[in-house]
Design a protein around this nucleic acid. Sequence first.
DNA 1: GTGAAAGCGCTAACAC
DNA 2: GTGTTAGCGCTTTCAC
Lengths: 336, 336
Amino acid sequence: MTVTIRDVARRAGVSQATAARALGGYGHVSGAAARRVLSAADELGYLPNRIARALASGVTWAVGLVIGDIENPFFAAAARGMSDVLEERGHTVLLANSDEDLDRERVAIETLRARRVDALVVVPSSGTASPHLRAAAADSAPLVLLDRPVRGLGVDSVTVDNEVGARSAVEHLISYGHRRIGLVSDAPEIPSSAERIRGYRTALARASVGVDDHLIALGGPTHRDGYLGARRLLEAPDRPTALFTANNMMTVGAMHAVRELGLLIPNDISLVGFDDLEWTTLVDPPLTVVSQPATDLGREAGRRVLARLDGTGGRPRRIRLQTRLIVRGSCGPPAP
Amino acid sequence: MTVTIRDVARRAGVSQATAARALGGYGHVSGAAARRVLSAADELGYLPNRIARALASGVTWAVGLVIGDIENPFFAAAARGMSDVLEERGHTVLLANSDEDLDRERVAIETLRARRVDALVVVPSSGTASPHLRAAAADSAPLVLLDRPVRGLGVDSVTVDNEVGARSAVEHLISYGHRRIGLVSDAPEIPSSAERIRGYRTALARASVGVDDHLIALGGPTHRDGYLGARRLLEAPDRPTALFTANNMMTVGAMHAVRELGLLIPNDISLVGFDDLEWTTLVDPPLTVVSQPATDLGREAGRRVLARLDGTGGRPRRIRLQTRLIVRGSCGPPAP
DNA sequence: GTGAAAGCGCTAACAC
DNA sequence: GTGTTAGCGCTTTCAC
């Protein structure tokens, strides 16, 4: 049925081992033998069986990636960055969505580990070291944390300075004179969100503005959750004069709420979002946002994997990339 | 080092075969033996080796997906839809980006086939049956074409009625009195784009409007390509009074061009886009678009795979889902 | 119901 | 440089 290396060897008139060496490009083979093997393989339409190779060698050339949701442009960019780095070096990435659910995350990690990926990159849904993360960290296949730190795991992580990023956003709002600044975020169990919430609080505290918990809307990770949160804030009797949305999904939801309520940006409400996407300069006014290097984050994670696999990883590193506040037109002084 | 089924068997005091049966949930095992095996596995932290299982059984429980670019929201949605259907049934999806490049597509397909995926879902970059697609079609692992048809392959395909969709967009524009309608698309080698271009031409022909090739801007698949194409059209001496953008990447690019040139929608220029994304209702005016069921497309492809794997696939099916014109505010009569 | 044993297709010593 | 051979960890007959 399918042509194996044995068939190729037979046709080339060499042993299976020689054929394997020629095909695999390892060990020593004479030029003549190699040529015969290669052309035999070509004639037979030989396609190496990576499964068999993986079982025999103990190396799959596959790297697992667990993200929240590939439909979130931030994750898509990170996934792309990582794939680009890894595929160039011959690795395949196996992707799984956790939907920010700890149980789905566990299943995804188990599946990937059962498939014997050479390394695992995960965007953890929780900041506490769950058993499945501990197990993955203890595994011989390296684990790299992407976008979010987890304490006490002792593994590489590639994140962004979320607290500083959020603080810069809120400080920007404060500089316009805002005091009632709403926060729309997903669950605080998500480490990056927790940091952003902290940044929000810190900025307010530094400016001696008290934190009003009614101004904080926490919910799920979808557009709709962001919409619901923003809507609750904006319909409250004493509504905020500005909004900070902690990620791009929240921004989309909040924008819909603002629009639906007939509010004008920045006259009625100022807004700073997290994540810079293409459409943020297409809306009117263009959005002031905290931009984070999503693709680079993924690339860096890919490089960490490569380093670990090369054995040049060194001590666990906590890499932090910087965010950047991009001031555009969605902020102004609070309405009187 | 790693615990194997042998270790579990030994600890449970049964043979390897019995342990495998209990763990794999096949064949006959007594309740008592099964319990002992399961708890032994649990105590040892046994994680089945899917690689070994795949080699022995000939089934990987993996499905390959080749798309253009996961950063394109349309593909992300399709990938998500497919994953949801397949993962629920225990399959893992292996994703690869082709960047609409035939050579990268070939490499991706080869890699996936070498990994012995049980089935392959491909969004083909070209409408002609390339050798690597033929090879994949001839393989024992079923091939399903997603989003784009390819003639003469004799395999399942799940697509959208692109020609009708594009026609409805252009007819809508014509109904407002537009005669000079620009088209911004990516390469016509891409089957779906070819159909949309055909739809554009057909609509014009039916309305007895001559096709002016200077009004057609064809280019690459990125935002920037869309921007460049639109910009060229809009800066021409006799610029179009309306624009049809053939996919969401082109729409983003065109919007940037429109904005940069200080043109007002729909006063200076009308626009109909393809693909309905969240942000299209966030811009002002909200965009009139041809919406296509991206997630459903992926789900349907997943179901086709499942059917083929079950052996209930039947004759190759060409499934076509419908598009829908969503009229919002980006169209008006041509400027005098 | 259970065990022994033969592979799945490849890699990797080890001899020659 | 090349061949022989023993696995990799599991599934799967085939006896018992």
